[in-house]
Structures are given as C-alpha cells and as structure tokens.
C-alpha cells in the first residue's frame, strides 16, 4: 500500500519542493495538493491520508486550525519558515517540524518517523489547541461536512450543550461542533461570554434582563427574546462581570 500524502501550503513553489521530496521516497503517492486551509480540511476529510505535510502561516485558516477541524488518523509534519511554533506543533502531536528551506536529509528523517508511526499504528491522535485549553480565539471554526464556517466570536449569541456536541447560535444560524462546553468556555473571552448554566454560555452583549422566578432560580432573557435558565454559580459569575 503506497503512503497517501496531502501537501498543504499557500505557496505554489513551496508545494512543488515538498512534492519533489515526497517523490524521492519510495511508496508514496500525493493524493492532494491544497493551496489553502479550506481545501485542506475538505481533502483530509474526503481522502483519509496517511501523512499530511502542512504549513503554519496560511490565509484564513492556519495549519493548527486545519488540524482542529479534521478527524482521522494521520501523521502530521509541519513545514514552515517560522521556528516559533515548534513547541505548539509537538503539543498537538505532530510527528515532526521542518524548517524552510527544507533539506533532503532532514525531510527523509521526518518522513521515516511518520511512516514508522503509520505502519506500526503507534500514531498518537492529533490534539487540538482548544483541547489543550491554550488558545483564546476571536473566532470559532466549525466544520460542516467538507465545508468550514468561520464564526467571529462577537457574532455568537449563545452556545448550548448538545450531548457530545456544542450548538453555536450566531445571527439566527445554528452550528454543531464536536467539542465540550468546558473547551468552548476556555476558548471564549471571559469578559464577554459567561457560562450561566452547565449547558449554556451567553454573549453578555445580548443580555436584556435577568429575572428571579423561584428561590435561587433565575431566568436570563436575551435581546432576541429567548430565555435561558441561570444557575446559582452562573448568576454569581454574571454579577461579578456586570458589577465591574
């Protein structure tokens, strides 16, 4: 079985160089070359590659964001001119991190690491930065089949827990994303988003009023008229934020 490989880089020449390095090793087949992150997400989902060679700096979606959006078991090798992301790369379980200009010997070394992990099935699953609780983001990325939605954080009205997913509601649209509420909460700006209940995070800019309807039980009404239960802990959080 040839090793199925996807190359992701927004620069045509950079892709060509990586392709050349790949073609110098035996038993590899490049199943896709992608010029941006959206194409990459689609290709990785549809083609189930063994190895993904990916740049970090790309328009719209960077390399880390692409990995956050895809599922599957494949070896990741970053190829970039910037050395400052190396630590993060290993934290998301990348197999190796190559610096541009890529030299042949170093490429072969990375490739062998990747292949041995793929063949021995010792590949560690790609972790997302969101799961590492590291990344505060001003936008949420949601994959819907092969398509990617980029939702700016300020456009989000509420986030709701839905079994293994979170439902993100923004501007009248609903998106499902496979993530935990805790991860979502960690990613969003705590000055703006409050977890008012175990299963609800609201954008504080959308809050219209809070009413008491039973002892220790409150209801938050948003500007669009929707109402959400507020837990006691959630009310404390809200008050802390609003008092400031």
């Amino acid at each position: 079985m040839p090793i199925r490989t996807i190359i992701v880089d927004d620069e045509p020449l950079a892709r060509r160089l990586v392709r050349e390095h790949v073609s110098a090793v035996t038993d590899a087949v490049v199943v896709a070359e992608c010029g941006n992150g959206f194409e990459a997400v689609k290709a990785i989902q549809e083609l189930a590659p063994d190895v993904v060679l990916i740049d970090v700096q790309m328009p719209k979606l960077n390399g880390f964001e692409v990995l956050e959006l895809v599922e599957g078991s494949f070896a990741v090798i970053f190829v970039t001119a910037h050395d400052e992301h190396a630590l993060r790369a290993f934290e998301v379980n990348a197999v190796d991190y190559l610096l541009k200009p890529v030299d042949a010997a170093r490429f072969r070394q990375a490739w062998e690491k990747a292949i041995s992990a793929v063949q021995r099935k010792t590949l560690r699953p790609v972790r997302t930065l969101g799961a590492l609780g590291q990344k505060r983001t001003d936008r949420i990325l949601i994959r819907d089949g092969g398509n990617v939605h980029v939702v700016p954080a300020e456009a989000i009205d509420v986030v709701l827990a839905q079994d293994d997913y979170v439902e993100v509601r923004a501007g009248g649209k609903k998106y499902l994303k496979q993530q935990t509420m805790g991860e979502m909460e960690a990613q969003l700006d705590p000055q703006r988003f409050v977890r008012i209940h175990r299963s609800t995070i609201i954008n504080i800019d959308r809050l219209a009023k809070i009413e008491l309807y039973a002892k220790d039980s409150r209801v938050a009404t948003l500007k669009d008229g929707s109402t959400w239960n507020v837990s006691r802990a959630g009310y404390d959080l809200l008050r802390q934020l609003l008092d400031r």
Partner: peptide, 17 residues
C-alpha cells in the same frame, strides 16, 4: 529573516524545475 528563508525555499524549488 523569514523573507530570506522563504526566498531560499523558492529557489530550492526552482532549482530542478
């Protein structure tokens, strides 16, 4: 410096093609 690294990468790609 990344300008230099990226340019060298381009040159490396062009060398054979």
């Amino acid at each position: 410096p990344h300008f230099l690294f990226n340019s060298l990468n381009s040159i490396s790609a062009l060398t054979s093609a």
